[in-house]
Simulated assay, not measured.
Amino acid sequence: MREPPEAAGAGTAGSGAGRRPERALAAQVAGGVLGAGMPVMPPVVAALAGGSGPLVWTAHLLLGGWVALVLAALVRTRVGPASLAGAVGALLGTWAERVVDGVFAVAFTAGQAAIAWFAATALLTAADGAPPRAGTDGLPLALGVLVVAGAAALGPWTFPAAVLRWRPWVTGVLALACAAWAWPGDPVAWAGTPLAPSGLSSQGALWLALAALFFAGVGWEAVTGAAPATGAGPGRTAAGVLLGTAAVAVVYLGLAAVQGRASPGPAPEPLRWALAGATAAVLTSYVFTNVRTAARIAARLYPGGRRSAGRGPARVLVAAVGAACCAFAWAGARDGGVPLLLLGPAAAALTGYALGAAAAVRHGGPLLRCAGALLLLVLAGLAVLGGPALSGA
């Protein structure tokens, strides 16, 4: 999960100066998607989907690339660089903007609780090489991650642009190391831990894995800010989106492949602690920036919030978001708490992308209307078919 383009995450891809427009757009797409999901999602998908994990990843990547293509074609000449909420608001009305901002504000709080629980699970796993059973053992650590990140978000400190630019690369290297050592352990034994619920049918587990992957895919909407900024024509815009999608696919399918070939035995204890500590530190840094992002999004929901967005969110709003993250963390104290908390970002992404598809149907040309209508049907079908399968979770 990454900050949307109006937040700090935009600095990772740069402005695109001196680049071909398709390369600049590809960097924005990849930079928008790749983030905290790199260490979190491969083990979660492996625990839920098992050997079907690569198929689940492929389905998500195809859907995410399709979303990005539709959104890029929609906003390229119709609106200026904006967030997804701003783009659908300009095309459908203020109500659509508020809906997208509302669902993403809530989704970011649930997502941070999931990140904190994963960090806590990694730290507890370092002790004996096996993930802890579900329960409240990891709750103090998860709350600790959220409190530290929330307290930092209340202060004036910010990451330098260079740190934000290099953080995805560091996170990717860490995710590769975790995948190579099958960290945090053998996914066969993860049922009943915070990483996978017990008693879920195989079909329900696959649907939960696909839904949870929307957490890793929050960022496909980065094109609503990037595509108009490049000023590229339709061909180069499509090429940039496809190139960025290919980069995301290489990273995530590569991590899944490395993890699938790694030895499931526990790593040596010093390595376990090194991986756990690095994972907790990196994920805490994402929680820090994402708490501010959620507060910034929430600030736009009240009158005058959009006009004051340039000053940053008020401290009381940042504190409220941090408290909401801690409340969600309490809900994660059950088996499968991490992927279940990720359903919040999944619902937000589904809502935002569906409104983007609806805007394409309403304002696009013939080809874009067909693509938007088909995307809308697919998203609605996922919601309708996935709901009963997930009810057991």
Score class of each variant (00 low, 15 high):
1 M>F: 11
8 A>F: 02
32 G>E: 07
35 G>W: 00
36 A>C: 12
37 G>P: 04
41 M>E: 10
51 G>C: 01
56 V>I: 13
58 T>Q: 08
59 A>W: 08
61 L>D: 00
63 L>K: 02
65 G>F: 06
69 L>V: 13
72 A>L: 08
73 A>G: 15
78 R>K: 04
82 A>R: 13
93 G>A: 04
98 R>W: 09
108 F>S: 02
110 A>D: 09
116 A>E: 02
117 W>P: 08
122 A>G: 05
126 A>V: 09
128 D>K: 00
138 G>M: 07
141 L>G: 09
152 A>F: 11
155 G>N: 11
158 T>M: 01
161 A>V: 14
167 R>T: 14
167 R>W: 12
170 V>G: 15
176 L>Q: 12
180 A>W: 11
182 A>Q: 13
183 W>C: 03
191 A>V: 00
192 G>K: 05
195 L>S: 01
204 G>W: 07
204 G>K: 04
206 L>S: 13
211 A>V: 00
216 A>Y: 06
221 E>S: 14
224 T>Y: 03
231 G>E: 05
232 A>M: 09
238 A>I: 01
239 A>D: 05
242 L>Q: 02
242 L>D: 04
244 G>Q: 00
245 T>P: 00
247 A>W: 10
247 A>Y: 04
256 A>N: 04
258 V>P: 10
262 A>Y: 03
271 L>H: 01
272 R>F: 07
282 V>W: 07
282 V>L: 14
283 L>P: 10
291 V>P: 02
291 V>G: 07
293 T>K: 01
298 A>C: 03
301 L>R: 10
303 P>A: 05
306 R>F: 01
314 A>F: 09
314 A>W: 06
331 A>C: 13
331 A>E: 12
334 R>H: 14
334 R>F: 02
337 G>K: 06
337 G>Y: 05
338 V>Y: 04
341 L>R: 08
342 L>N: 12
343 L>P: 06
349 A>K: 08
352 G>H: 11
352 G>R: 08
354 A>C: 02
363 H>D: 05
363 H>A: 15
365 G>S: 08
365 G>K: 10
366 P>S: 15
377 L>A: 15
379 L>E: 10
380 A>W: 10
381 G>S: 15
386 G>R: 05
